[in-house]
Amino acid sequence: MNLFRILGDLSHLASILILIRTIKATDSIDGISFKTQALYVIIFFTRYLDLLTFQHISIYNSLMKLFFIGSSLYIVILLQRSKAIQPIAYREMIMADTFKVQYLLGGSLIMALLFNYKFSFFEILWSFSIWLESVAILPQLFMLSKSGKSKSLTIHYIFALGIYRTLYIPNWIWRYFVEGKVDKLAVISGIVQTLIYSDFFYIYYKKVIKGSNLQLP
């Protein structure tokens, strides 16, 4: 474990806590993409199936996996619960969430079948989750770009997620030089994902520094 990896994991953790805390504190789901959150549930469930094999890497690793599975499920439940509590806000969220996720799911499945470390059930699902994670934020970014307005909740959330993705790159560079280890699929999909976020970061930078309106291309 290196510093980049730990800080990356911690910012990933922070992004989830920011999301949960804000939903609970403000009682608002405004600006959140239900689809992106549902994709994360699929991602963590398909990637962390190895928990069932009891081949534990470390306590840290297993606890983090359980946290990501549990928290992603909890967020979807929180969003789903707002259907009864705030029917109008819920309806607005679903109406604004128009990104076609079936392309992301289908594309990730094709990538997983083509690129995997082994043509086995666990490995194909692992690869699927890696590709799906690289694009899972798109419905959220699409929603943000359509509304044209910046919601501080979603901005902080996406920002923390983007830091997590960015920190994984120096982590891989570190691992390559220090451990001589390269996870090719994780690196390639991670770069794709970081490029998606860098687009957001660029817009965010322009907005914060120059005070212009948030608009994603």
């Binding site: 990896r5 990637r47 190895d50």
Partner: peptide, 10 residues
């Protein structure tokens, strides 16, 4: 089993 690859990153 040995058929599973260990992915040590999250």
């Amino acid at each position: 089993s040995s058929s599973t690859i260990m992915h040590d990153e999250l």
